[in-house]
Design a protein around this nucleic acid. Structure first.
Lengths: 165, 165
DNA sequence: CGACCCTTTGACGAGCTTCAATACGCGTGG
DNA sequence: CCACGCGTATTGAAGCTCGTCAAAGGGTCG
């Protein structure tokens, strides 16, 4: 951003689709990999050709885009109305839900290759304050994020803090 | 929201399309009119029928949805990284741009039927603080919002505060 | 072993919220 | 016509959350 700060709009998980450049011009944001990745791309012409054959593809892409919009709305609500603790709890819940829908989770432990700086840029706080909140979570036995692993001890409390409805 | 607060996700202007329920189930939010309005709705079956005839309609709907997502991303960035002044400036600029693309604006005066409470709920501040910021804008001869009219005196300064790129 | 990155912690300050009082415009009813 | 109530905006004082600055610790890799 112009002021030198960074806003992380969302975290892509393995298998996620990036529709950003499908329905509009160039991306308004950049994408950065936190892990080793594999990407599949599709050229416009190929998409047009496939859509011509099977209309459902276009519906699916649109739905995917709509899901992005819905997630963005949730983020807006969290950033606008939540305190630091609640925002971080909300981010955790979002990521957990998405990871859980892909993998089988055992023991409420989630692999998250995130630095505190990433969390800070995603929820609009300073890394220093993120550290404080995480320490508090740890101390209160709510959750613990260290060494790239998020461990949830008290899911209820986390939901009480960061759930939107 | 659960805590009794409200987040305004966006302001719809005359002619805006609400694609919310097109590509996903029930709306995750509610819609409230600030003025007298007229709505045109279209049933699913009718949409499907029209899409079958002309594919471009689906593309247009998807593009519309993608625009929403892009606007949401901007809002996320503003809420996450901007101060109170900057967020309000950004909201003004967004609204001005959208209004200007519809109407012809003379004299940098925009009709906005917004209470300070609406602004507060849109940018995640308290009405009290919104009042302070608006007073400051007025005093510094940047802009003046009163009686439902936004008047911009110093567009440059407003952009310096609230522009994203 | 030393350099570097990340995290933690403390002290202090700024920005925003909260609480409360006041003022203003507007419609209603006496 | 004024009195009253209601919603909205303004302003001040006090307090809390979060940011900033700075220092120190720990892990990892050369």
């Amino acid at each position: 951003m112009p002021n030198g700060r960074r806003q992380i709009l969302s975290f892509l998980l393995p298998g996620d689709v990036l529709t950003g450049s499908l329905f509009q011009g160039p991306l308004q944001f950049s994408v950065k990999a936190l892990t080793a990745i594999q990407i599949s791309t599709m050229k416009r012409e190929e998409i047009d050709a496939r859509v011509a054959v099977n209309l459902r593809i276009l519906w699916a892409a649109a739905e995917c885009c709509a899901d992005e919009a819905r997630a963005a709305d949730e983020t807006i609500a969290a950033l606008g109305q939540f305190s630091a603790e609640e925002r971080i709890a909300h981010l955790f819940l979002q990521l957990m839900k998405r990871i859980a829908s892909r993998n089988v989770i055992r023991d409420e432990r989630y692999r998250l290759p995130l630095r505190q700086q990433h969390i800070a840029d995603a929820v609009g706080l300073t890394p220093v304050h993120v550290s404080r909140v995480l320490s508090s979570f740890r101390e209160r036995r709510v959750a613990d994020l260290s060494n790239g692993v998020l461990e949830v001890f008290d899911l209820r409390e986390l939901q009480r803090l960061g759930a939107l409805n």
